[in-house]
Write a protein that binds this DNA or RNA. Structure first.
Lengths: 207, 207
DNA sequence: TTAAAGAATGAATTTATATTCATGATACTT
DNA sequence: AAGTATCATGAATATAAATTCATTCTTTAA
């Protein structure tokens, strides 16, 4: 059902390394092509060409075109999941945790622009993928809830916050910043926005 | 080039009212179908059925499928444009202007959920539409810049704000809130989020 | 009342591309 | 080295849906 079971289904042999390589090649090529043209305008032939294999070969590794996008998002989601959890753990108090989370978020997306584009724009399509995305989003919002509650206990954040709104507010603003960076073809350093952004969260426009 | 010239091209007769009605019917139906299925999965036949006309009829009013989406976005953009400008004018100081703008934004999107969905998810598509969207986005960011600068002059907002970031921060957060509301099938009142949201902008999490 | 113009229809056509599968290549085993 | 199994190929097929256009219906005006 997930990425790992998929790989094992076909690669549980001594050939594992080779097949894995081709699988990854296709997945990366798909990421590039989807990011450039969008899922629907991207064609199997384009992806195959980019990966240097025949069209039919994609169907040895993926069920169909939808499945390629699904696998891509599953894989990236898992990776980012782990990084973010680790990042939050490093923080010793709520403010630090928030800072690490935002920094991690921006770092991951800056390092994988195709992923950034795909997460941002192909989110809405397949039902499966939609719930996949909702999962990552839920996880993220869960992390934020914990941080805010901790901040309230610590006394570093106000008690009257409507957490449901605050979570969205924080996530929306990061995504907005990423979105702009993508539109600007990634021509500036995204990660350097992290601290100013967190300052805005914490102290607002009035200061 | 814009909606008005398009209408005039075909409706500059005494029949204007009737034709306009059919044009609008198709446009609204298209909005509903695009919102439900997404641009690519939506079919001409679905839109035609929804509008109660034959497939071929769509081609009397629109150049092709892309054009339908383009016209839809042009039209909605113009409407929202005007409302937002008017809203900002009502405010007597920066804080009030911001409040009116956000309230207007949420009101417009709450009142037209199809538009909200389409703006949120079909944005990335045609080159033309992309620039169309960039225009509305630019306009919005321009309004925000003005408000922030005014706030700085008035002394109600801090001097050390990085305006380029703040604009994105504000827009991203509203969009995030709208996005959640759409995902929740519009089951709660979006406009009531406006004031808590603006409070977050202004005073932040620390308060 | 009827003929001409305009509008609408929807079946037929066109196009595009995802997917299949017969064939050929490659690697592994004994 | 021959045989077997696995993997890769890409031309052929299937399918879906956008678009066209000959025909029919409706309105207008003399």
């Amino acid at each position: 059902m997930n990425l790992y079971s998929f790989i094992l289904r076909k690669d549980d042999t001594s050939l594992q390394k080779n097949k894995s390589e081709k699988y990854n090649k296709i997945l990366n090529s798909a990421g590039a092509v989807f990011a450039e043209y969008g899922f629907y305008k991207a064609t199997i032939s384009q992806i195959a060409a980019q990966a240097g294999v025949a069209d039919g070969t994609l169907y040895l590794y993926f069920k169909n075109k939808d499945d390629i996008l699904y696998q891509f998002i599953s894989f990236k989601t898992n990776v980012v999941f782990k990084e973010m959890h680790a990042a939050v753990k490093k923080g010793r108090n709520a403010e630090e945790k928030l800072r690490y989370l935002i920094r991690c978020h921006l770092t991951e997306f800056q390092n994988d622009r195709n992923m950034a584009i795909i997460f941002q724009s192909e989110v809405r399509y397949l039902r499966d993928i939609e719930s996949q995305i909702k999962d990552i989003s839920k996880m993220y919002l869960g992390l934020l809830s914990d941080i805010i509650e901790q901040g309230q206990i610590e006394g570093s954040m106000r008690q009257d916050l409507f957490i449901g709104l605050v979570k969205r507010f924080i996530l929306g603003a990061v995504e907005g910043v990423i979105s702009t960076w993508v539109s600007a073809d990634g021509r500036y350093d995204l990660v350097s926005m992290a601290d100013p952004l967190v300052d805005l969260y914490l102290t607002g426009l009035k200061g």
